[in-house]
Nucleic acid binder design. Structure first.
Lengths: 323, 323
DNA sequence: CTGAAAGCGCTTACAG
DNA sequence: CTGAAAGCGCTTACAG
């Protein structure tokens, strides 16, 4: 009763169609030297036609552990955050598509990653993160999700995204715009803060920072902080640029409970555009699936010994009902 | 510079030590017929001695897609919940250990699971869940994380856990004990509720239910609900049995903001014992890693065509500072 | 009950 | 530049 599994073409099928040996196909597919450019092109075209997907199993069998990719989360308190969850999920799919096998390493077990995996993706980077050094010293190729540095890395355009959101509020006539952040000291927040400051500077407005202590439950913490602040001075802000959708949710709920109208009296923006969570929020969308796919692509380059590079992934302002 | 990977023994090594063919080793390892009990025992002993780990790659290569296991989440609003994240992470590791490859299917893409995976694990079951039927009709062996039914399933002792927590509060002298739940109508909550009622019945106390609407942010929602309720009647409860650690966190924060002493004036218990999140909370611990491992074991039985069974995983009351 | 051999899909020396 | 062949670790007919 089970549906016929879509028979995916293998290397032999491509070789047959191209009229060459499987060795040549393998070389073309893996960007290996020792094959003419013309043949490579022809083989790549055919492999696209037949929607070739490499077999994770076969590759892994040969390379030993090389196809096993360890995914490492940075700190305990990051591990349960929705953004990382989604990234992790997309990474799983993207790796599988490339014939690689994901295996998860919680923060406290990352030390054993080099023994079990042939490559790594590092999420949730933090200050003085020892993991890049760990990977390097064990000869494990890796990609970071984070700001440009010495190794391969991918990051969304944090600064630009927050700039867009802030400018959007400015253009909507807001004048008392605060930035609500999780942990303003982190390098990550610093980037986003930069975008906020730039937009305010351009408009000649004053900056106002709300620094929520890093927390397991940003929505609740944001809610409490804003509730207290506005209890004393309800008109303190007419715009809130939040660093994450979660913080924005907490702020929205606080405004609702205080009877302040959104977006009439206060406009709110988020960041991430998380499914379900973002809802009717005006926010900055990151392409999480795209970031995952790019990480895997870069990991391929790292495994091939190519020189490290950083890729900045585009973001987009999504205007909804809170601004 | 990289550390020597711990050379794991393969099937050939075991065959050599046992003085038999690799075919016999394979039969012994996979519980296949056509081998004497004595030989099987001997081989299994040796394979334990050498800490044999089957090669995911080799098995998958042979079985086609059979080693690819689709992990499906039930509903969008479950996908970002910490409990499921952790379960998912442990599942990744447990599957890998058994030579299987996890691939993630978000709620809205579960329909394509049968095409891409040879087996499935279903998380976050809900009422009228169509997924078991979907898997069955496509001939995909699967295991549910959920209450006993017609198919393979694993679940923690929900009822017993809440019973333990409630009885613990009763024995601590509490008399106005409420049950705080996420979605009391769900089959899942019904089990937990049962444990609560039983403990109260035994003590001759009245039940009191607090039904928080199912929500993306249980901590915040619980916080707001409890804050309002206690604003009118601060002494309404002297004990709160929460269905999850997240709800308990929200309640604790509300009590703190209201100036009610924990555990002096109100005792609070959670459920799950999530890392970091549980903190100093008295809670009921589930062995998430154990549940993951058991799911994978049952999946093996399902793939082998054995008759379905349900496994109930033990829980444990962990008394900390909130009771 | 047990073993020798083929083969899963791929990569990589080794020849040419 | 290209191909024939060996081999990664395992399972499974096929013989005995």
């Amino acid at each position: 009763m089970s549906r016929e599994p879509s028979k995916t073409a293998n290397i032999r099928e491509i070789a047959r169609r191209a009229g060459v040996s499987i060795a040549s196909v393998s070389r073309a597919l893996n960007d290996k030297p020792g094959i003419s450019e013309a043949l490579r092109e022809r083989i790549l075209t055919i492999s696209r036609d037949v929607e070739y997907r490499p077999s994770a199993a076969a590759r892994q069998l040969i390379s030993g552990k090389a196809a096993v990719v360890g995914i490492s989360l940075g700190r305990r308190d990051f591990e349960l955050r929705p953004y990382y969850i989604l990234l992790y999920q997309h990474l799983t799919v993207a790796l599988h598509r490339q014939g690689m096998v994901p295996i998860f390493f919680p923060h406290d077990r990352t030390a054993s990653l080099p023994e079990q995996a042939g490559a790594a993706i590092l999420l949730g980077e933090f200050a003085d993160d020892p993991r890049p050094e760990l990977m390097t010293s064990h000869g494990v190729p890796f990609v970071r999700i984070g700001p440009a540095g010495e190794s391969f890395s991918v990051a969304p355009e944090d600064r630009h995204g927050i700039y867009l959101a802030t400018r959007h509020l400015v253009e909507g006539g807001r004048r008392r715009i605060a930035f609500v952040g999780d942990d303003l000291q982190s390098p990550h927040s610093q980037h986003r803060l930069g975008g906020y400051r730039q937009a305010l500077d351009e408009a000649g407005l004053e900056a106002s920072l709300i620094d929520i202590p890093p927390n397991l439950d940003p929505a609740l913490t944001g809610y409490r902080w804003l509730s207290r602040r506005l209890a004393h001075e309800p008109r303190a802000y007419d715009g809130l640029v939040c660093e994450t959708d979660e913080l924005a949710r907490g702020c929205l709920t606080a405004l609702e409970d205080l009877g302040l109208e959104v977006p009439g009296e206060v406009a709110v923006t988020g960041f991430d555009d998380l499914p379900t969570l973002a809802g009717s929020l005006t926010t900055v969308r990151q392409d999480i699936a795209g970031i995952a796919a790019m990480s895997v692509e870069l990991l391929g380059e790292a495994l091939a010994g190519k020189p490290p590079r950083h890729v900045s992934m585009p973001v987009e302002l999504v205007v909804r009902q809170t601004s």
